[in-house]
Design a protein around this nucleic acid. Structure first.
Lengths: 111, 111
DNA sequence: CATTAGTTCAATAATAGCGAAGAAATGGGA
DNA sequence: TCCCATTTCTTCGCTATTATTGAACTAATG
């Protein structure tokens, strides 16, 4: 029962980005989405590495799409979050929310 | 400016536990608190390792208390979250909350 | 000096991250 | 028409940082 392994911060954000992007969830936009939220550079390499870990843990699946008729329209690898992936996102959210709730001094913005 | 390094999941939870425990924040209870929230074993070794990383990053400070007059009443090492530590907790919270808000399908409990 | 509560150590696995190389597509000029 | 420069996207190799465990060590008391 090693499946209690918690989502890392980065993996969690990737799952959220994939969920958010829906049908357009492939490497580049996922990476862009992450950059938008954390404000720091996010190299695509690190995104793919995390996606591979997530796929190995069956938290996402990937399917190869068709090439599109445009410059550089190489076939994309699309990702989807699995049921189990969704479960872990929810669980992490539940736990963190619970922990945060206990902290009145964090309710407002810190000065 | 490497200070954008995000809190790992575990480090975040430790900071939250330290905040929560206040004056009683030392190794063993921190470890117990974590075990209560994640439901998995948390070895004290991993807690100390993370606390040391956090101290190296100036997100917590530690001070050695006095021995207490009881069996095994060895002096404890108490931890406190620094201002910067608090800031990072808040920021992580802000980012994750924002990401979660975008996901209506996670609002309710997943079936 | 056995026991208890607490901390440190050593070693390993897993996660995060980066930059460059590789692959597959199109568009344009000779 | 054929290359090939360019574009978009994925894979690879490598390093750094985090997470984790189990066992050893320290300092106190009964």
């Amino acid at each position: 029962m090693t499946d209690r392994s918690y989502l890392g911060e980065f993996e969690l954000m990737i799952l959220l980005a994939v969920l958010h992007l829906g049908d357009e969830a492939y490497g580049v936009p996922i990476s862009r989405e992450l950059e938008r939220h954390r404000d720091r550079d996010v190299s695509v390499g690190s995104v793919y590495a995390a996606l591979e870990r997530l796929e190995a843990k069956s938290l996402v699946t990937s399917t190869l799409g068709d090439p599109t008729p445009e410059r550089g329209g190489k076939a994309k690898r699309y990702f989807r979050v699995t049921k189990e992936g969704l479960r872990q996102v929810s669980e992490t959210r539940r736990i963190l929310t619970r922990l945060w709730k206990q902290l009145p001094e964090l309710k407002g913005e810190p000065s």
